[in-house]
Structure formats: structure tokens, C-alpha cells
Design a protein around this nucleic acid. Structure first.
Length: 369
DNA sequence: GTAAGGAGGCCCGAGACGAT
DNA sequence: ATCGTCTCGGGCCTCCTTAC
């Protein structure tokens, strides 16, 4: 026995893993027969008697195939990496749930990485996941012109974008119809009587920020509201703090606003903070509409009227697209757009008539949906 | 003709070993 | 000391051979 061999055997014994050879020895067959017996696709090539003997031996030894070793031969790890920009952001929980649900049904395991918004760390994580031989990647981090996408294309690894899309459709993406979402929000506010509506936009480098701002502008134009009556302040990030900063600018620079449409729920919560610090009431003095319908938005005070995105469906669709792409790399890119829905809660109400007495207590205009 | 065994290749990092 | 080459390990798969 060579030194290298004995070291390897020690390593194997330490890991305690049962190998195909041990199953073969117990079943009194060759390892290749074990492989055939345990694979439903090849089981028909051997007799039922031998197959059941192998299966019994595998069960007796509690044999579990070593996927990493299998990937040496097959080139497939059955692992999928998912990059999210902020794992603490509640938006990603239902997306991840949808992804995991669909991938596990297809026999894939999911590795989730909290990539942040720094390009260098995102690329490092992607390289790390590729080094772990993931079969594909789902990116919830993409910007409109994304170097990580370019890196994945360079490495020839199947990817699908979720929740965000690129400006140039190099890869498949699953997104919400942001233009439609903004139209729903603005229609609702105009229906209540609002004519001075501000928008807290998301970062312009992200498709959601860009498309929701454009959607907002198109939606107010549809109601013959001039741009001066529908000002936009862009937040530097999708955070409550950035939302508050943008809300301050919006209120300082544009007097007389009666409603705010935020590009996501965290930005809307930032607007809540500013209204509170300035002694303004929501919705009596200012109506606020969010976007995403993150978990718990029905529990904030007042419960947030928001545009609901089917995040779980989004995750499922993205996983579906990726599985198809991993099976057939020559498939054309597809953009799946899911329809949003307005969820009416307590943060919106008709604008106050100038000179009318201030109500003594908050009274939501709508029952939560 | 069919079932099953045997050999070798796949992939790549770690470690051993020889050459310079 | 440094570099290049070879061997090994894991499980699976394919091709070829052997036994019946």
C-alpha cells in the first residue's frame, strides 16, 4: 500500500462515508452494477433480483451517493447558486421560497449568497459559486448594466435574473410589470382626488428604479398632470434611511404635495419617518403608496397601501427558466413579466380640503384588502 | 441475445517524487 | 529551492468482453 493510498483511505474512513464499492461488496456485484441498479434510468438493464439485492445492500449500509464525486464524471453538481443583495430584506424571503420549492422538486439544492451591492464582492461570490461547480445561477442583484452578468456569460454558466432585469436582454429574466404597478398606484390616488403627487424613486442603476420612475411619469401624464405637479426625488439605495432622505428633499423642494408614491416599501417607510418627524399625519396630510407588498406591511401604522408583486411566483418562474436553460443551453432568452396588484390599506385617503378643520383622530379611507 | 463483469476515462486538487 | 510530472481518490458512465 502506498503512502498516498493509505492517506486517502484514512480520509475516507474519517469521513465515514459509505462508497459504491462497499455496496457492491455487500451485494456481491460490481460497482458498475450498483450504479445501474440505483439509477432509475438504467435499472432496466439488470435483473429485478440483482436490483433488489443492490437496493437492499444500499439501504442496509445507509448509502448516499457522493454528489461531488458524481459531478466529476457528469459535470453536473445539482447545485444552484442564488445571489441576493440583502438577505435581511424581507422581499427576498418569498422569492427564495419559490426558487427553492421548484428547484428541490427538480432534484437541485440551493446555495444562497448575501452579495451586498459591491460589484467586487458580487463577482468574488459568483466566482466562488462557480468554483463549487454550481450548475446555474439566479441573480436578484442585477443592475441595468451588470458586470456580474457579463462575468457569468464569460464563464458560460446558465443564469436567470429575478426581480430585476438588464437594459440589454442578454439573459432571461422574471420581473414584475413596473409600469403597470405605477399606473395602478397613480390611478388610485387620482381617483381619491390627488393632483400633486411626488415620487420617491429607486436607484436609477437598477431596472426597478428606472422602470418605476418611467412608469410613474407615464401614469401621471395619462391623467394630464404636468411634471411640475409630479416631482421625483431619487433615493440612493433601497433602504429606509435613503427613503427618508429623498422624502425630506421632496417635501422641502415641492410644497403642497398631498401624496407620495414610493418605488418600494422600505422607501415608503422612510417617508413615514419624515412625516412623523415633521408632525404630518398619514393619510390625513399625506397619502403614501409603497411597492412590493413586503411581509408585515399590513402591520405598520398606518397599514401601507402598496403594489403587490407575486414574489413567490417570481421565484418559481425564475427556477423554471433556469432548469430549462440548464437542460438546453441553446434556448432563446425569455423575459417573463408578472402582473402586479394594488393592495388597499390605511395609508391613502382623499386629500384634505384647504381650510377644513383637521380631524381629531386618524381614520383610514379604505379597509385593508 | 441478454445479463453482468472488467477496464479505463472523466475531472481536478493534493501530495509525492524526480530533474534542474 | 523551484519547477514539472506523475499518481491517487471519489462515483459514474461507456465500451468491450465473458458467461449463460
Amino acid at each position: 500500500m502506498t503512502e498516498a493510498k493509505s492517506m486517502s483511505e484514512r480520509r475516507s474512513q474519517k469521513a465515514g462515508a459509505v462508497t459504491i464499492k462497499e455496496v457492491a461488496a455487500l451485494a456481491r456485484v460490481h460497482s458498475s452494477t450498483v450504479s445501474r441498479a440505483l439509477n432509475p434510468q438504467t435499472r432496466s438493464k439488470i435483473t429485478k433480483e440483482v436490483a433488489s439485492r443492490v437496493i437492499a445492500a444500499a439501504n442496509a449500509l445507509k448509502y448516499r451517493p457522493d454528489r461531488s464525486a458524481a459531478s466529476l464524471r457528469t459535470g453536473r453538481s445539482r447545485l444552484v447558486g442564488v445571489l441576493v443583495p440583502d438577505i435581511a430584506n424581507l422581499v427576498f424571503a418569498p422569492i427564495l421560497s419559490g426558487i427553492t420549492e421548484r428547484l428541490s422538486a427538480e432534484g437541485y439544492a440551493t446555495l444562497v449568497a448575501d452579495a451586498g451591492n459591491e460589484l467586487a464582492s458580487q463577482i468574488e461570490l459568483v466566482d466562488g459559486l462557480i468554483a463549487h461547480r454550481v450548475d446555474g445561477l439566479i441573480l436578484a442583484t442585477a443592475s441595468r448594466d451588470d458586470a456580474v452578468v457579463a462575468r457569468c456569460l464569460e464563464r458560460d454558466i446558465p443564469i436567470v435574473l429575478v426581480n430585476r432585469a438588464e437594459a440589454q436582454s442578454r439573459v432571461s429574466a422574471v420581473v414584475s410589470d413596473d409600469g403597470r404597478g405605477m399606473q395602478l398606484a397613480v390611478d388610485h390616488l387620482v381617483g381619491l382626488g390627488h393632483r400633486l403627487i411626488g415620487h420617491i424613486g429607486g436607484p436609477e442603476g437598477l431596472s426597478t428604479g428606472y422602470l418605476r420612475r418611467r412608469g410613474f411619469e407615464a401614469a401621471v401624464a395619462n391623467h394630464q398632470i404636468r411634471p411640475s405637479q409630479a416631482p421625483v426625488e431619487t433615493a440612493s439605495a433601497y433602504t429606509r434611511e435613503a427613503g427618508a432622505e429623498a422624502a425630506r428633499r421632496l417635501l422641502d423642494r415641492h410644497k403642497g404635495l398631498t401624496a407620495i408614491v414610493a418605488a418600494n416599501d422600505l422607501l415608503a417607510l422612510g417617508a413615514y419617518d419624515v412625516l412623523h418627524e415633521r408632525g404630518l399625519r398619514c393619510p390625513a396630510d399625506m397619502s403614501v403608496v409603497g411597492h412590493n407588498d413586503m411581509p408585515l406591511m399590513d402591520l405598520v401604522s398606518p397599514a401601507l397601501t402598496t403594489v403587490r408583486i407575486g414574489h413567490r411566483d417570481m421565484g418559481r418562474e425564475a427556477a423554471d427558466l433556469l432548469v430549462q436553460r440548464m437542460l438546453r443551453g441553446d434556448l432563446p432568452t425569455r423575459n417573463v413579466m408578472l402582473a402586479p396588484k394594488l393592495i388597499l390599506r390605511a395609508s391613502t385617503a382623499p386629500p384634505q380640503v384647504v381650510g377644513a378643520p383637521r380631524p381629531t383622530r386618524r381614520k383610514p379611507a379604505h379597509k385593508p384588502a
